[in-house]
């Protein structure tokens, strides 16, 4: 890396060694850059719990029910839209996006997972809802 140089003078006067300092700084920068790239940050996905009273009494569009079966199959109003191995749930995202574009943020979406569904799968569905900008989101009773 940085070249050597410096060293003691004739009278034994050792000057400030800039080259090794630059070397060390490069190593430190590399270390922190790698650490910054590998950092996993904790985020959040929010919902409004069921039973929360709503202020407005306006007519709302019909709710979308997203059922999650025990094996991870996702249904959109009783029509299968995501297989258990479908992690990205692209079809669900686009259907939700269409609904949100049509009815806006008022569109209610209810997630109804079976009680044995893994939290990971529920979060994948919640994530699809977040991607489609669903705001009126809640959970229905598990079966």
């Amino acid at each position: 890396m940085a070249g050597g140089g410096g060293g003691g003078g004739e009278e034994g006067d050792y000057g400030f060694q800039i080259a090794p300092m630059v070397d060390i700084m490069f190593v430190l920068i590399l270390f922190f850059m790698t650490a910054a790239m590998m950092k996993v940050s904790e985020n959040e996905l929010g919902i409004k719990a069921a039973g929360t009273p709503t202020a407005s009494q306006e007519a709302q569009p019909a709710e979308i029910q997203l059922r999650i079966d025990a094996d991870g199959t996702v249904s959109f109003n009783d029509r299968v839209i995501g297989s258990p191995i479908d992690d990205s749930l692209a079809a669900l995202r686009s259907r939700l996006k269409e609904a949100i574009d049509l009815f806006g943020e008022k569109q209610p979406v209810v997630i109804i997972p079976q009680s044995t569904v893994k939290h990971e799968r529920v979060i994948e569905v919640l994530n699809a809802c977040a991607a489609a900008n669903v705001k009126n989101l809640t959970f229905g009773g598990g079966s």
Binding site: V40, L45, G46, I47, N127
Partner: peptide, 20 residues
């Protein structure tokens, strides 16, 4: 969530990570 709702907490969030 049921306990939270019954005790008056309706704003519930789930902690997730952005990558594996």
């Amino acid at each position: 969530m049921l306990v939270c709702t019954q005790e008056g907490i309706s704003n519930i969030t789930f902690a997730v990570v952005d990558k594996e």
